[in-house]
Nucleic acid binder design. Sequence first.
DNA 1: ATCATGCTTAGCCATATATCTAACTATCCC
DNA 2: GGGATAGTTAGATATATGGCTAAGCATGAT
Lengths: 113, 113
Amino acid sequence: MAKHDPDLSLIFHALADPTRRAMLTRLAEAPARVTELANPTGLRLPTVMRHLSVLEEAGLIVTAKDGRVRTCALVPEAMAPVRTWLDTQRDIWEARLDRLDDYVTRLMKERTK
Amino acid sequence: MAKHDPDLSLIFHALADPTRRAMLTRLAEAPARVTELANPTGLRLPTVMRHLSVLEEAGLIVTAKDGRVRTCALVPEAMAPVRTWLDTQRDIWEARLDRLDDYVTRLMKERTK
DNA sequence: ATCATGCTTAGCCATATATCTAACTATCCC
DNA sequence: GGGATAGTTAGATATATGGCTAAGCATGAT
């Protein structure tokens, strides 16, 4: 089981923290500067920066500095790999149910023969 | 930003590891015993057990022991909170686009007035 | 009863995470 | 220029994570 999909791992890891999810939710409303994101968290700035860089490295947000203000914005397409993975997972599961179905169907034909 | 949704954090954290995702994919095909899941990983059993318990604590799988064999099975509904979160996130984003739309529309009416 | 099989437990180790404080840098405003 | 504002950098620390080995404990087969 090699380390495929480093993206997915980065994204899921970024999403695994409630503070970071809250930040994403905030950013879904509108872009925001660093202190704006920090405020509701009660965390110190360096800590917030760390969270932001995790989000940025996962590709979930982009940031840009204008003067002394850094503005952060959501990258909504970045969630796509997650949906894709979930869908693939579901497809496999459903294919399995179908096979079961076939099996049951075959059994019943056998019976009523 | 309190620690709501411990579930989501547990689930995302469980999904953040490629080995664990591979195990889930395998289990989407069919239930499997521990050694069966361990084989393709090249990892030692205790390590595999650890991964399995992370998955189980996140509610993504269930396991049961029959004799000396423990069988693991996927709990596909367990992914639901993830989809819900993604959908909510998307809704917020789209509501935002709508507001932008309104804004632009208003501006244009203003112009052609 | 004995032995192999299939986990389990306990404990070690290295690295990664989340948080902080303290000190520094770069703007902006007067 | 000088002070306030907005980040940033550089550690320090505590805990968590992912991996291992070694030893233990049921259960199934002979």
